[in-house]
Design a protein around this nucleic acid. Structure first.
Lengths: 340, 340
DNA sequence: CTGAAAGCGCTTACAG
DNA sequence: CTGAAAGCGCTTACAG
């Protein structure tokens, strides 16, 4: 019922092989034949059946994106849509499609990935997170199936990955605050099982150490604490005799919560507490006060990841197996010294 | 090189047909045979080649999602990730995959959709927006290819669609503000070419009219104005002799901008101006003050759209061709009367 | 420059 | 309950 290559061949008075060659822009087809076949394709409204094409060419022109299963953190909303746009942009440019997959558990994720890989559903896969001893990564490695991780797997530094230098990012923010004269600087983030979180904590700690400052453990508190009861967390923080005057906050969303609680308790930002966030939420510039943040280039992460994956799929030379997307400090009012 | 159905058949001592039947859980295969074949599949690590399966079964078990091309508005970030999650959840449950597509122009979008439909790449498509005289919708209709629109096409009320009742939503918000005693109520939103925007404006206008209030045109201003220079827009608004005491705002992100400018100019919310937003941004409850909003159930929009599309693909009975996802007012501090 | 033939890995009437 | 055969719509050596 649908127009096939055979219909076109008949009508154009050539063989199916020839039509196929015209479609693929193959060599050595006469201009006359090419023109005739193209005209017939147009006339009949022919479009190649991608399934058939994929089956015989053993390639799908599709890459898979595995979504992290607990995507219920608001931060991930933004990350997800930006990174997807980056991936899609790069993939589309190269003629590739993007298939989305998710799983509710590690088991389901593994099944999904197995289906994609073994079922020849996609040519490569992008991962948005890695867990300790990640079975998905282990499987992909063992099958030698092309994949790229956005982030970092401390146990397998040699896999293809695209990431920020999160240690350096937090280091930069902390140094920035130190240079503004702050000595007692706190850190809000976590959980530390997440690589990104522990990396940022490490950068924070390192900058302080370089200045000979040993952070008081009471200056450091977890994201879950803030989410549960931000006001209680802030009150506990501010009641300390030696309370911090600045906070490095792992994500702007967290920073917004803290801002709300500080204001509720009558403290002013940046007067009583300077705040510097991460991930440059679109709301950060328009919040009250505007929140200082680190732009981590989420779109770029996606773009680069897709680029790297495509190289891997096509067996092209890969210069760096680990691509670092640069970050950028965006100081705004929430961390400005009073005078400026 | 990869294990095929033939390898399994040989090893199990049966025909390929039988293996195929075991895989599809077909009728009339003896328990003994089934067991034997399954054991061999397990042993050989067999996984069906999806391309081959799709080719012969003329079905892809995949649905396509077309992303709106100008997805650079921050609001869409949230909408996109939530709606995708809803779609993915429903699709995965039914054993379907999700393919993402985008185009930089209407022309590119049409080409993308043509490839998907004619190329038998997907079984159905979900659209996230419609334009006046939308060529993509016209094409899909003409090809009788299954699709669902999230939103509303005023020119084609009979297509499958999932949407909120945006007129009613804005009506409800405006009534809520009227009941709190406000008489001069403004509206911030637009552009009015977007159906969702004009629908909300219509609901706003209707509620006022019912109370015998004719809105002053100076109370109504566009989103672009706010994005360009929120403070100027707010100043102009507040300098009016008969300035509004409450604002219906088309999106929470817009509300955040307004909040910032109001605060900057020394006005208090809700004291000097009550604000009621839309789309319940995750930040709304934690902003200062917490922003009243309308939860439009984005996840549900995605879930229902996928459900509707799957019914259409399977030619199942469809009771309502237009599904309305209920909205919910979430009054917070930004619209509370001073005393409460 | 072009065609005939085999094959990609599966499903599905048709027989038995 | 099971098998042989044809076919899904394309590509790609192999010949000429």
């Amino acid at each position: 019922m649908n127009v096939t290559i055979i219909d076109v061949a008949k009508k154009a008075g050539v063989s199916p092989s020839t039509v196929s060659r015209v479609i693929s822009g193959s060599t050595r087809i006469s201009a006359a034949t090419t023109e005739k076949v193209k005209a017939v394709m147009e006339e009949l409204g022919y479009h190649p059946n991608l399934m058939a094409k994929n089956l015989v060419s053993r390639t799908t022109m599709t890459i898979g994106l595995l979504l992290p299963r607990n995507a219920d953190e608001a931060f991930l909303d933004l990350f997800f849509s930006e990174v997807t746009r980056g991936i899609l942009s790069q993939a589309t440019r190269a003629g590739y499609d993007l298939l989305l997959k998710t799983g509710k558990s590690e088991q389901e994720e593994l099944e999904a990935v197995t289906r994609l890989a073994k079922g020849r559903r996609v040519d490569g896969i992008i991962l948005l997170q890695s867990r300790r001893d990640d079975t998905v990564i282990r499987y992909l490695l063992q099958e030698k199936f092309p994949f790229v991780l956005i982030g970092r797997d401390p146990e397998r530094p040699d896999i293809l990955s695209v990431d920020n230098d999160n240690v350096q990012g937090a280091y930069d923010v902390t140094r920035h605050l130190l240079e503004l004269g702050h000595r007692r600087i706190g850190y809000a983030g976590g959980p530390l099982e997440l690589v990104v979180s522990s990396d940022r904590y490490e950068g924070y700690r390192r900058a302080l150490a370089e200045s000979g400052i040993e952070p008081d453990p009471r200056w450091v508190f977890g994201a879950d604490l803030i989410r549960q009861d931000s006001t209680a967390a802030v009150r506990a923080l501010m009641e300390q005799p030696e309370r911090p005057t600045a906070l490095v906050v792992m994500d702007d969303l967290l920073a917004f919560s803290l801002l709300g609680s500080l204001s509720e308790l009558g403290w002013s930002v940046p007067g009583d507490m300077a705040v510097f966030g991460f991930n440059d939420n679109p709301m950060s510039p328009v919040s009250t006060p505007p929140v200082s943040s680190v732009d981590i280039g989420v779109y770029q992460l996606g773009l680069q990841a897709a680029g790297l994956l495509l190289k891997s799929i096509k067996n092209e030379e890969i210069a760096e197996r680990r691509v670092i997307v640069p970050h950028r400090l965006l100081p705004r009012e929430s961390s400005q010294p009073p005078g400026s």
